[in-house]
Computed example of a mutant assay.
Amino acid sequence: MEQSNGPIQQPLRAASADPGFIPGLTGAASPFKDAVPGRPVQDAPEETVRDAVPETEAETEVEAAAEVEAEAEADAEDVARPAPGDGPSFEAADRRGRIVADAEGVRLSYDEEACEFRWDELAAVESEKGRFGKRFTVTVHTPDRRWYPIEIIAPDRGHIAGWEAELDAVLDAYFDEAS
């Protein structure tokens, strides 16, 4: 008779072990699931296909109303947002990283990783120059207490002062501290 000395561990049932654990991740059942090699696959009857997507007038009206509302919101955002070339912009880059801040928001990229933040998604933008050397660090803070730092190496120390002035001008123009 075998006896366990350790705690009883239940099998792991999570998204890391079973992708079907996440609702909506797996698609609809395939008609080829029960297919036997060497036998032809029969098509699903038409009634089953028609019944799978019931469409009533009420559903159609709800979908149309949602589309109209989404278009109205998109138009309102376009009116409120200034054109990309109108105001000040800031860009700093080295061989690995890039920082771009303009009317659309702040974009950070480092090697193959990239992230983009609209101005209404930001809580703070912080810049810092290294005490020694040519490093310029920009940290983007979000309202949910996350921060995204990126460090750019300047060609010389004089570029850092220019970058700080440009970034301050962009932040003054687009960043609303009240939000």
Rank of each mutant, 00 (worst) to 15 (best):
E69G: 05
Q42F: 08
E59I: 13
A93N: 05
A83M: 11
D78R: 15
V62I: 15
E46N: 05
A114T: 12
R118K: 12
A80L: 13
D94M: 06
A52S: 10
V106S: 06
E59D: 14
S89M: 09
C115S: 13
E77Q: 07
E47W: 07
E67P: 00
E112H: 10
R135L: 12
K129E: 07
G38W: 04
K134Q: 05
P54E: 08
V138Y: 01
V79R: 10
E112F: 06
A93F: 11
A103T: 09
E91H: 09
V100T: 15
V62C: 07
D111K: 11
R131P: 01
A72V: 10
A72C: 06
C115W: 03
A80F: 03
A93D: 02
A66G: 03
R135C: 05
K129N: 02
D51W: 07
E46K: 09
E104W: 00
E47P: 00
E112T: 11
A76M: 10
A72H: 01
G105H: 05
S89F: 11
P54L: 13
A70N: 02
E126A: 14
R131A: 13
V106Q: 00
W119S: 07
A65W: 03
A74R: 05
E104Q: 10
E77H: 04
V106K: 03
E61M: 14
D86H: 09
P84S: 12
A93G: 01
R50E: 05
E116T: 15
A93L: 07
S127E: 02
T139S: 04
E63T: 14
D75C: 10
R96N: 08
E91M: 14
E59L: 14
L122H: 00
E69A: 15
G97N: 12
T137I: 15
G130T: 08
E121P: 00
A80G: 04
R95E: 08
D120H: 14
E91N: 11
F90Q: 01
A103N: 02
G130D: 05
D43S: 13
E47Q: 10
R107W: 03
K134R: 09
V140G: 03
D94A: 07
R95F: 08
D111A: 14
A103D: 02
P40S: 14
P88A: 15
G85C: 06
R131K: 10
V53Y: 06
R39K: 12
G38S: 07
E57Q: 08
D120P: 00
A44D: 04
A74T: 04
V106Y: 02
A124S: 11
P82M: 11
F136I: 12
V62Y: 05
P54I: 13
G105D: 02
Y110R: 09
R118N: 07
A44K: 07
E104S: 15
S127H: 08
S89C: 08
A92K: 01
V106N: 02
A52H: 06
E73L: 14
A123L: 09
L122W: 02
P40V: 13
F117V: 10
E57T: 13
V62N: 06
E77A: 15
E61P: 00
T139D: 01
A80V: 09
A124K: 09
G85L: 12
V62T: 14
L108R: 01
V106M: 05
E71P: 00
A74N: 01
E57W: 03
A92I: 09
L108P: 00
E77L: 15
